[in-house]
């Protein structure tokens, strides 16, 4: 926050390494505009105490606000408040959605003794289906793919009956998913439809 401007160091042989905030991804000095100021501050204090001192020290804050008129300051503060409220709301919504959504692990009979396992509902937890599918494939050494379901949306289809293992794996790897929100279903009736969808 001092007067040192970046561009004042031309001819630097190597690229600079810039630290980015772990919460809002902006450079820490811009955290105040990110809407999650409180969390960013906490993060910075923990992860980069030195930088925290530079950016959030009393003098720095004073210098920062000195150049603005009182009215502009007020407006900026109001704006920041609004943004923070918005961010909080969004977060709340996300948490709500996570609490309410259910991951369904379905065992589908394919051919008397052969099964496939269909996992749906993972996207609500902010997971990338494609990546998770790849992990399933690696973990269980089977084919695993993302397929569209007729009702819209997508699910992961893993070859073989690995429903119990998947549950365990999910709980261990993605701590965001509460155990109660995982549902195991044994599906026999929908055999034909599922087979068609998987094909």
């Amino acid at each position: 926050m001092a007067d040192t401007e970046t561009a004042e160091a031309p001819g630097e042989p190597q690229s600079r390494h810039v630290v980015y905030c772990g919460v809002c991804t902006l450079p820490p000095e811009y955290c105040e505009y990110g809407g999650t100021v409180k969390k960013c501050q906490e993060w910075l204090q923990r992860a980069q105490p030195a930088l925290y001192q530079v950016i959030w020290s009393a003098e720095a804050l004073e210098a920062a606000t000195a150049s603005l008129s009182v009215e502009a300051q007020k407006r900026a503060a109001k704006d920041a408040q609004k943004k923070a409220a918005q961010a909080e709301k969004a977060e709340q919504k996300q948490a709500d959605r996570m609490a309410n959504s259910v991951v369904t692990i379905k065992r589908v009979e394919r051919n008397k003794r052969k099964f496939v396992t269909a996992v749906s509902g993972l996207e609500a937890f902010g997971l990338d289906l494609k990546k998770v599918a790849k992990e399933f494939g690696k973990k269980f050494a089977t084919g695993s793919s993302v397929t569209k379901v007729p009702s819209g949306g997508e699910e992961i289809v893993v070859q073989g009956d690995v429903s119990d293992e998947i549950e365990e794996f999910l709980l261990e790897k993605y701590k965001d998913i509460p155990e109660d929100n995982i549902e195991l279903v044994d599906d026999k009736k929908l055999k034909k439809a599922a087979a068609a969808a998987a094909a």
Partner: peptide, 22 residues
């Protein structure tokens, strides 16, 4: 830009404009 700030022509905005630009 953050890695090579000297490589690009630049202008500077005042403090009050930052929140709008962002």
């Amino acid at each position: 830009v953050h890695r090579f700030p000297a490589g690009f022509p630049s202008i500077r905005i005042d403090r009050g404009a930052i929140r709008f630009v962002l």
